[in-house]
Amino acid sequence: MSLPTLFLPGTLCDERVWLPVWQKLQVHQRRYVPLQWASSMDEMLALTTDRVLAGEKVHLAGFSMGGYIAARWAIDNPDSVASLTMIASSPYGLTAEEEKRRAQLLTMLKKGSFKPDSPAYITRFVHPDHQNNPDVAGVVQDMGKDLGAATLLAHTQATTPRPALTDKLKACSFPVHIIAAADDQVVTAGVLKDAAETIPSDSYTSVPCAGHMCLLEQPDTVSRILQSIVD
């Protein structure tokens, strides 16, 4: 029997990041977890719980920050999990360098300095082939403008620090799938391949010609991978 699938967005993202994949994906029930509404880890986990009925199993598909939240929830609720798919999302904890970078970001945000339409912002998240594509770079910019610095600040604080989940995922019986973007500058394919071998995951796939925003850049490929998991 087909089971519901929960979709979780990344930092400073909403349902727009998933829309191109949803348009190509056939699922029994599509349920979206609006992490853009949350300002703490507890709220993110509670929003996920709210979308799962008592006694049912669900597939979890989380992008970036959403992948980490999905993994956290799955570890806490293994009997409700049919599968976990982490997309451009690392189960490892933050490195000292990443925590330092986040501290700098928080300082910048508190001073009111945030420009989602800057070339540097787009370059970090979007593959060069898609940086002039309004359906990719334009959506990233629009989400950044609409959700704003307050959401980015809340998401960053809610997920810092970020403990590693690899040991706990090793002990879980549900399938774990990892999807990497081949040219991701934020969560590199090499890191995710290592994580897939460490857990070990039930599948690892690298999406070609894609940066961190692989859901927008390569929805055909991502939807095909997800379809094979949820069928």
Results as ranks from 00 to 15, higher is better:
residue 1 M to W: 05
residue 6 L to C: 07
residue 9 P to N: 06
residue 13 C to F: 02
residue 16 R to K: 00
residue 20 P to E: 00
residue 21 V to W: 02
residue 22 W to A: 01
residue 23 Q to M: 08
residue 32 Y to P: 10
residue 33 V to H: 06
residue 33 V to G: 05
residue 34 P to E: 14
residue 38 A to S: 10
residue 38 A to K: 05
residue 39 S to E: 12
residue 40 S to F: 10
residue 43 E to F: 08
residue 44 M to S: 14
residue 46 A to W: 01
residue 47 L to V: 08
residue 47 L to K: 11
residue 48 T to F: 15
residue 49 T to Q: 10
residue 52 V to K: 08
residue 52 V to D: 07
residue 54 A to E: 15
residue 56 E to S: 14
residue 60 L to A: 09
residue 60 L to D: 13
residue 62 G to E: 11
residue 62 G to C: 08
residue 65 M to D: 11
residue 68 Y to C: 13
residue 72 R to T: 06
residue 75 I to C: 07
residue 77 N to A: 13
residue 77 N to W: 10
residue 78 P to Q: 13
residue 81 V to A: 05
residue 82 A to F: 08
residue 86 M to W: 08
residue 89 S to F: 14
residue 91 P to R: 00
residue 96 A to L: 07
residue 99 E to L: 13
residue 100 K to A: 14
residue 101 R to K: 06
residue 104 Q to S: 11
residue 108 M to H: 10
residue 111 K to F: 04
residue 112 G to I: 02
residue 114 F to K: 01
residue 117 D to L: 01
residue 121 Y to V: 00
residue 124 R to W: 09
residue 124 R to C: 09
residue 125 F to W: 07
residue 130 H to Y: 12
residue 131 Q to H: 13
residue 131 Q to G: 08
residue 134 P to I: 02
residue 134 P to R: 07
residue 135 D to K: 03
residue 136 V to L: 07
residue 139 V to C: 01
residue 139 V to Q: 00
residue 140 V to Q: 13
residue 144 G to L: 09
residue 145 K to A: 15
residue 146 D to T: 15
residue 146 D to H: 15
residue 150 A to H: 13
residue 150 A to S: 12
residue 157 Q to H: 02
residue 158 A to Y: 07
residue 161 P to M: 11
residue 162 R to D: 03
residue 162 R to A: 03
residue 163 P to L: 12
residue 165 L to N: 06
residue 167 D to V: 12
residue 168 K to L: 15
residue 180 A to L: 06
residue 181 A to Q: 06
residue 187 V to D: 11
residue 188 T to G: 11
residue 194 D to M: 12
residue 194 D to R: 13
residue 198 T to Y: 06
residue 198 T to V: 04
residue 198 T to P: 01
residue 204 Y to F: 14
residue 204 Y to L: 11
residue 207 V to C: 12
residue 209 C to F: 10
residue 212 H to C: 15
residue 215 L to V: 01
residue 216 L to R: 01
residue 217 E to C: 11
residue 219 P to T: 13
residue 220 D to N: 15
residue 224 R to Y: 09
residue 225 I to V: 09
residue 229 I to S: 00
residue 229 I to V: 03
residue 231 D to G: 15
